[in-house]
């Protein structure tokens, strides 16, 4: 019993080490963070302007609602990008800095290593996405009188479990392919973008793509978030979207860990667990 408690304490300490390290990195690269924020802001504005553009060309749409609808898509996409980005670049970054061998030979379980990275990505993603949302909402003078932000946060946190699980699956790619692994991770992210209804309803997709949409957590996250922000829906009324997210999360995390474990064994077998150059 005491041994288990000591192990758990040590594991949690390792997880806190991941959070600590990533916080230092963000702090040391703060100007780059600001530059990236501006880039994300510009991208999101580009999407949010689409509604105004359509209205000006004669389309009869509720500009406020359409802008909010697109904005939520862009924000979720940006959030997803941050979570996936941090996970998929975890290995590549360490390879580049040369710390990969020290991290992988430390007595830190891979579960805590990956969960720590995922947890940091979620915390960091929520802060950045909230800041982005405030700036864009002020820019467009968006009126969201019914928005239920607490419910939106719950949906985002539940969805994040699945996002971390899928992120773990993609984070193995740079481990087995040091040269092209990261790019392959972005391919996976792009596939989620196209089937999940980021900027359109999934009902416009062909049947086979709608089938893929049903297994993408982003589909349910986007639908539920739009309901909370635009219509003010509460958590109870969102159960139809929340339970699939829970199921996908419960499957994705262990699956992600197992895929990473196998990838790590492959890397150890073939000598790929080493720094670049």
């Amino acid at each position: 019993m005491r041994g288990a408690a000591t192990t758990l304490r040590s594991e949690l300490m390792g997880l806190s080490g991941i959070l600590e390290r990533n916080t230092y990195i963000i702090r040391r690269y703060i100007w780059w963070e600001l530059a990236w924020f501006v880039w994300t802001l510009a991208n999101t504005l580009t999407i949010a302007f689409i509604a105004k553009g359509f209205a000006q060309s004669g389309a009869k749409i509720d500009v406020n609602k359409a802008t909010s609808w697109l904005l939520i898509g862009a924000l979720v996409w940006s959030y997803l990008g941050m979570v996936f980005g941090l996970l998929v670049e975890m290995v590549q970054w360490e390879r580049w800095e040369g710390t990969i061998e020290h991290t992988f030979m430390a007595p830190l379980s891979r579960t805590m290593h990956l969960l720590g990275t995922g947890l940091f990505a979620v915390l960091y993603g929520i802060v950045r996405t909230a800041a982005l949302f405030v700036v864009i909402a002020l820019f467009f003078h968006l009126r969201l009188p019914h928005a239920n932000y607490a419910a939106a946060l719950v949906v985002l946190l539940v969805a994040s479990v699945s996002f971390i699980g899928i992120g773990m699956m993609t984070s193995v790619l740079p481990l087995i392919s040091p040269e092209k692994g990261v790019q392959l991770g972005y391919v996976a992210q792009g596939l989620l973008l196209v089937v999940s209804g980021v900027y359109y309803d999934v009902s416009v997709l062909p049947g086979w793509m709608q089938a893929l949409a049903r297994i993408s957590p982003a589909t349910y996250a986007l639908r539920a978030l739009r309901k909370t922000i635009i219509d003010g829906a509460g958590v109870r009324s969102l159960w139809g979207d929340i339970w699939p997210l829970l199921v996908i999360g419960v499957v994705a995390i262990p699956l992600g860990l197992e895929i990473f474990r196998r990838g790590e064994r492959y890397a150890k077998r073939h000598g790929k667990l080493k720094r670049s150059g």
Partner: peptide
Amino acid sequence: RLSAIENLSYAARFYG
């Protein structure tokens, strides 16, 4: 980009 203290500090956490 991290300092010596920062590098040692997080690494020590990995060892509990």
